[in-house]
């Protein structure tokens, strides 16, 4: 295995865990199981929280500030990315007090465009990398992909794990890939996409989450958005439990990013409630929680107007980018 990730001050216990393939396997398989029915019920139960008035407005603004405004299409162009950047800087042009988005998330070749468009805004530029979305390429390509993005100015890298390796139990390989990419990221923040829709069980989500954290991921992220199901509430619960437990063990704060399928304010608030009550209030910050989304932002803006104006708003009052 490669040297332990530099960024994470692994406690001796965890350094030991990652010593070799069999230690890693023992550790991951020794994690408490996740009962599907139980976690889904808890997620549904928390989903009934009723967030009203000032607390709703706070949630909307917080959610806006957590959005990684994303476009990951074959048809992406410089123009499309620029307009997305404009949206990220100033989500609601009529209302300058609306917080800016957390980042814009694009393919590596469009990072430069985004960096330029967002210069000085404080909005991050995230790039997917490592043969996104399938992760099916050589390590050399994945490293080059990452270096390209970082060289172009990406402040955040969203890598995908090799789900094939994970599902066939080659945890060491997945660990090494993440650690290597983390190294290639330099100062850029690394988000590790687990693609939970392909992991099949919550037990696997928990193991993959820990693998991502052990290998040095700053964030663990649910999905590429290219696989269904993408983010779900119970999957996010399991990942929030992982970062909470990581914090309890190491004192380090790591983030979670659900991505894909979160389209409405109602959805977003359910996620924030989960963040608040499963991980804890300190995770209610763009430093530690993001939404990977494209259409969510407009619904948040519409609902924000509804809250403030006292009547329902409509799609023509928010910008389509």
């Amino acid at each position: 295995m490669v040297a332990p990730p530099t960024a994470s001050g692994l406690t001796p216990e965890f350094a030991d865990v990652t010593r070799d393939e069999s230690s890693l396997r023992r550790f991951l398989h020794g994690l408490p199981g996740v009962d599907q029915v139980g976690v889904e019920q808890r997620a549904a139960g928390l989903g009934t929280r009723s967030i009203k008035k000032a607390s709703k407005l706070w949630a909307i603004d917080t959610a806006i500030s957590m959005v990684d405004l994303t476009t990951l299409e074959g048809a992406d162009t410089v123009g499309k990315v620029r307009s997305l950047c404009a949206k990220a800087r100033r989500p609601d042009p009529d209302r300058p007090e609306v917080p800016k988005a957390a980042a814009v998330c694009v393919y590596p070749d469009l990072v430069e465009t985004a960096v330029r468009a967002l210069a000085g805004s404080g909005v991050g530029v995230a790039s997917v990398a490592t043969a996104f979305p399938s992760g099916r390429s050589s390590m050399r390509v994945k490293i080059a992909d990452t270096e390209l993005a970082v060289a172009a100015g990406a402040s955040e890298v969203d890598m995908v794990i090799d789900r094939g390796a994970f599902l066939s139990g080659r945890y060491g390989q997945v660990f090494d890939e993440i650690a290597t990419i983390k190294h290639a990221c330099g100062d850029a923040h690394l988000k590790v996409i687990l693609e939970t829709g392909e992991l099949a069980t919550y037990d696997n989500v928990r193991r993959a989450s820990w693998l991502g954290l052990l290998a040095g991921g700053d964030f663990i992220k649910t999905s590429t958005g290219k696989v269904s199901p993408a983010a779900t509430l119970p999957v996010t619960h399991v990942m929030l439990q992982a970062v909470r437990d990581w914090h309890d063990s190491t004192g380090e704060l790591r983030g979670v990013k659900p991505a894909g399928g979160i389209r409405t304010t109602k959805d977003a608030i359910r996620y924030l409630v989960a963040v608040h009550e499963v991980a804890g209030p300190e995770w209610l910050s763009p430093e530690l929680f993001r939404f990977g989304a494209s259409s969510l932002l407009n619904d948040l803006l519409m609902q924000r107007r509804t809250q403030l104006d006292g009547h329902y708003s409509g799609p023509d009052y928010v910008t389509v980018d």
């Binding site: 009723s50 967030i51 607390s55 209610l284």
Partner: peptide, 10 residues
């Protein structure tokens, strides 16, 4: 960090 107080939802 701001705390998030849920408004009453009676």
């Amino acid at each position: 960090m701001t705390t998030w107080e849920y408004a009453p939802a009676p």
